[in-house]
Structure formats: structure tokens, C-alpha cells
């Protein structure tokens, strides 16, 4: 009866106060059968990484609209490395210019989804690219 279930932390780093996008993606993940740990707004990178470790998630999905993605997202990945948790997949979505994406990917962010991406596309990406740990 053993059964692995994908666990995903959904949160919002930074100062902006909109969590509509994060909530939509959290619901889509739930409906896809994933277990979502929803941490809400205004998360520091330290809080995100600690929560991800305590919750043993397979994926950290961050929604970011504040424009601070180039500092916040790499900061999250650096902390993951520091805590030897870089096996967790890090993904982001939000208002992020195409030109910033290659730099973010080089900094450890596995995938970046821009506005207009359907939740189906994101769920499908998770299904194919993120496997629950062995």
C-alpha cells in the first residue's frame, strides 16, 4: 500500500501583496493529485527553504511579481545549496522578462513560467519533470 505522493511548496517571496496567481496554481496542483504546502505571502528565502526541508517537498514553486526575481530566486537556490537541499526542484512563475530567464536558469531555477501560461501546461511540466524522491 506504499504510495509516493508529490509534495510541492507554493509560496510568494518578496513584498508584493498579490497571491491570486499562487492560489490558482495551488488549486491546480491539488486537483492534479499533488499535496501542496501553501505558505502564503511575504516569505523570506530562509523561511521558504526551511519550510521546504521540514515538509520534505519535491518541488518549490514560487510566484513572484515584485520585480525582485533576479535577487530573490538565486538567493533561494543558494540557501538550498547551503543546506544540501538542491535536490529539490526550484520553479518560478510570474512577471519575469524573457531576457532574465537564461540568467535565472543558470542560477539554479529549473523552469520559469511567464504570465499567460496555462495551469495545464504547468501541471504537465511537473508531471514529466518532477518525480517524488525514491
Amino acid at each position: 500500500m506504499a504510495e509516493r505522493r508529490l509534495r510541492i511548496l507554493v509560496g510568494k517571496p518578496g513584498l508584493d501583496g498579490h497571491d491570486r496567481g499562487a492560489k490558482i496554481i495551488a488549486r491546480a496542483f491539488r486537483d492534479a493529485g499533488f499535496e501542496v504546502i501553501y505558505t502564503g505571502l511575504h516569505q523570506t528565502p530562509e523561511q521558504i527553504v526551511s519550510a521546504a526541508i521540514q515538509e520534505d517537498v519535491d518541488l518549490i514553486a514560487l510566484s513572484i511579481l515584485s520585480g525582485a526575481h533576479n535577487t530573490l530566486l538565486p538567493a533561494v537556490y543558494e540557501l538550498m545549496k547551503e543546506k544540501k537541499a538542491e535536490d529539490i526542484v526550484l520553479m518560478a512563475g510570474g512577471v519575469i522578462p524573457e531576457t532574465d530567464i537564461p540568467g535565472l536558469k543558470a542560477a539554479g531555477i529549473r523552469e520559469v513560467f511567464t504570465p499567460g501560461t496555462s495551469t495545464e501546461t504547468i501541471v504537465e511540466w511537473v508531471r514529466t519533470k518532477v518525480t517524488p524522491r525514491a
Partner: peptide, 14 residues
């Protein structure tokens, strides 16, 4: 229905 869940208690404990 889906077997999924949204676990939201942490929001208050961040």
C-alpha cells in the same frame, strides 16, 4: 476526488 490537498496551516506560523 483528486487525492491532492492544500495544506495551509503554515501560513499562520511563518
Amino acid at each position: 476526488f483528486s487525492g491532492g490537498a492544500i495544506l495551509g496551516d503554515r501560513i499562520r506560523m511563518n
